[in-house]
Amino acid sequence: MPPLFLILRGWLMDRQQIEEIIGKYKHPEGKILSILEDIQEVDRYLSKETLKVVSETLNIPLSKLFSIATFYSFFNLKPVGEHIITVCMGTACHVRGAAGLLNTLENLLKVSENGTTEDGKFFLTTEDKHFSLNTARCFGCCSMAPVVKVDEKIYGYVTVNDLPRILKEYGWKEDENR
């Protein structure tokens, strides 16, 4: 996890910092994905300006970078919420009721389908940018299915009733007029 101050400062890396990251990768194999992942680790998403800087520095057309960023599920192209909630939608979790968890979370967080970006990725962020909700295909924690991850913490054997309690740990407030 990158240092807290980097996240809280709210602004993104500048050209020099980006070039530093690029410089880490000497060999061409797999370097583009690694560079973008490293940038996202700090900035939490890839902004247009960032992609432009990468495009110029690496001499890769912006169209290609954009294509890559929108192809791979890993990359966020829109700012993300403070806390990211990921529901595992793997087979074992599905078979133990993950879909119900996702529905309930959507209702509790009051996020709707309109959160999808134009590249069609499922990533819903609350209005106050407190939470972002997305899904993952499998964390590999099938023995404790169904699994929900908030930031880096993994919760297992989650039932619908556990969700408000878990969300409250991250500052979620239940709405009075529901």
């Binding site: 194999e29 797999g30 583009i32 994905l33 690694s34 192809f71 791979y72 599920s73």
Partner: peptide
């Protein structure tokens, strides 16, 4: 060397994997 994927199941397919390592979409 280690090359990271970025969340695309299709990159398990050989030619897509290669494309991904080459810095293309998978």
């Amino acid at each position: 060397t280690i090359s990271k994927g970025a969340g695309a199941f299709v990159c398990g397919e050989e030619t897509a994997l290669i494309a991904s390592i080459e810095g293309e979409t998978g």
